[in-house]
Design a protein around this nucleic acid. Structure first.
Lengths: 182, 182
DNA sequence: ACCTGAACACCGTTCAAGT
DNA sequence: ACCTGAACACCGTTCAAGT
């Protein structure tokens, strides 16, 4: 009882943070809420619907990009990266949900808009915005998989470079490319 | 009978190409091979082991990067991208498997080596190689999710730009950044 | 050496029935 | 309106037992 969409979403996020995305199951959420699995389907259309709602909650903490200068672009990228790593399995969840969203409901769309406002050529603005998002999601996904594997097994080989530094380096290359290209 | 590791891997890849990564289950493979699910475990340690073997097979078709000039880098990136999209769910599979691999067993490592041979500064070479791989995997993953969603549902909104072109644009920005930075 | 059969502890989702 | 209970069609993995 006292069941609601919000409570289901926050319980799901709690399970995700504690045990990983693979352990977020309708049955586990139901058990945590002391309710039958089928009860969840009154408040939620499907598991996919729940995952979308979880993504919404996570992305709500993403600050907007204020200005499209190199410094702020790199800072925004770092923020996005940090946000994804704040929840266990956050990168996989957000990457899946953003992929099937309309372009305008995507963090990259706001980056693109800012670049266009700075009179960056449309093709460059789009490639950069889209590229930054794919890069950060791809990088965070890998980092996350490694973190998850570290918990489950032990045979995980270390990476030679600092992960956040590698990402920032790649972000910097794209950012440099935006302004140097014309 | 006539069961072997190779046959299990190729059957798994066939199921993946026909129905997607989510439908690649040990039980489905067993059914396809007219064998009990438990029989697979004589030839394969676990499902994770099988997924690694499948990744190996897919990546075997990735041509080496011959030279680290801008044109060939962009061409190699396009090849990698095409390779991932050739199998349904290929990007997700390869992204997961590469994440927990040692750096040297990664396509990015060979790109890094080529860049170093061209006397690109080590930090730049690593950021670029790592960035290109994450970018391509992240992009292909998203594209793949959209392709999969298109098959299952219909409410998928179209993306405003050509996907392959967007990726090439982002790749070009990184590539330009490598050589213009010093 | 290689496979069967049965079991264990799970999944997402539906749907009639209760309150 | 909101939840239970039971069912359906699935999972990965283990392990004794057969051949």
């Amino acid at each position: 009882m006292a069941l609601s969409r919000e409570i289901i979403v926050s319980t799901a996020l709690t399970i995700m943070d504690s045990y990983g995305l693979a352990d977020v199951s309708m049955r586990r959420i139901a058990t945590a809420l002391e309710v039958q699995p089928s009860a969840l389907y009154w408040h939620v259309d499907s598991k996919q619907d729940l995952l979308s709602a979880m993504t919404e909650t996570i992305l709500a903490d993403l600050p907007p990009l204020l200005s499209a200068d190199p410094v702020r672009l790199r800072l925004w990228a770092a923020r996005f990266h940090t946000l994804l790593l704040r929840h266990r399995g956050g990168a996989e969840l957000v990457a899946s949900a953003l992929a099937i969203r309309s372009w305008d409901d995507t963090p990259a769309a706001s980056v693109e808009a800012r670049l266009l406002a700075e009179s960056v050529p449309p093709a460059t603005a789009h490639a950069a915005a889209h590229g930054l998002m794919s890069l950060i999601l791809g990088h965070a996904f890998a980092e996350e998989q490694r973190a998850q594997a570290k918990i489950l097994r032990v045979d995980l080989p270390e990476r030679p470079w600092d992960q956040a530094e590698s990402l920032d380096g790649a972000v910097a290359l794209i950012v440099a490319g935006i302004f140097e290209s014309q």
